[in-house]
């Protein structure tokens, strides 16, 4: 499916939640949508899921406006960290209900996920812990196999081992049933390996859209003896410094030229990739 977002803005009273955003997503891969709290991630994703309309600009999926479009809306699943505190229904009925409306829902797969997350089938959802409720949302999201599946911080509340199960299942199911998956997060360091492509929004604006592989070559980490590292990175844009004893590691932003790489090697410095987390912090910091 092809998602096109053209000059989209969303205005709340006198503040822009999103400002003139344009991008295209058209491959079955996992997209990471990164942004700080309040950056506009949820608002942007709400638009794709027809939860709301843009104040200006346009959105199209397969060339059509998705808002109130029954054939498109059934193929977009927006999974958020839903609060089930008032839900008296149990998991079995909840899944059966979703199954009625999601054309590609796979019950066997849902059962498999339920076993992995160790969720009880017959207890009312309101009795589930926060982590279990997140697992319910994620189970519905994965098992619906919607061609456009959006996870908006849906794993909030899960503990680390449970999130790990989710990441494994996500990658496995994505390889068997490829679709467009958009995951918003601020847990960047933990999830970066999942992303094929990254979009970063900051204060309502799209800062970048780039393949993960090429993005992490936008910078480098230089590691070695402190003095050598210091002299090497002196004139570069430094993002972060770590030091252990006399060994120092500095993250720099900006691609290294071949000559610079060779110079680093000659000095015995180790040149590694930059982490997405560092880039993310650099691109979104200090603009409030």
């Amino acid at each position: 499916m092809r998602i096109e977002v053209n000059n989209v803005s969303v205005k709340f009273k006198n503040r822009y939640a999103l400002k003139d955003i344009t991008f295209t997503i058209n491959e079955n891969k996992i997209y990471g949508l990164l942004g700080r709290n309040g950056a506009g991630k949820t608002t942007l994703l709400s638009l794709l899921a027809s939860f709301r309309e843009p104040s200006s600009g346009s959105i199209s999926i397969e060339g059509e406006d998705p808002f109130e479009n029954a054939k498109l809306m059934q193929h977009v699943n927006f999974v958020f960290n839903k609060d089930y505190k008032d839900e008296t229904d149990n998991l079995k009925n909840t899944l059966e209900n979703v199954n009625r409306y999601r054309p590609y829902f796979d019950f066997d797969y849902a059962n498999h996920l339920i076993q992995r997350f160790k969720l009880p089938m017959d207890k009312p959802l309101k009795q589930f812990s926060k982590g279990m409720q997140s697992a319910v949302s994620v189970t519905i999201g994965l098992a619906s196999r919607a061609p456009i599946t959006i996870f908006d911080e849906a794993y909030n509340g899960m503990d680390a081992p449970t999130r790990e199960i989710f990441y494994q299942e996500l990658l496995e199911d994505q390889s068997e049933h490829p679709r467009i998956i958009i995951m918003s997060t601020h847990l960047v360091s933990e999830m970066d390996y999942l992303f094929d492509e990254v979009l970063i929004v900051n204060i309502g604006e799209l800062v970048l859209q780039e393949e993960y592989e090429s993005l992490v070559t936008k910078g480098a980490s230089i590691t070695g003896p402190a003095e050598d590292v210091d002299s090497f990175v002196q004139s570069m844009n430094q993002l972060n410094t770590k030091q252990l004893g006399n060994t120092k590691s500095v993250m720099i932003y900006g691609e290294l030229s071949d000559a610079e790489r060779k110079a680093a090697q000659a000095k015995g410095l180790e040149v590694g990739p930059i982490s997405l987390q560092e880039l993310f912090i650099h691109l979104t910091e200090g603009e409030e």
Partner: peptide, 9 residues
């Protein structure tokens, strides 16, 4: 709506 149903339906 979160199950992909239009407001009209």
């Amino acid at each position: 709506v979160s199950n992909g149903i239009t407001r009209k339906d």
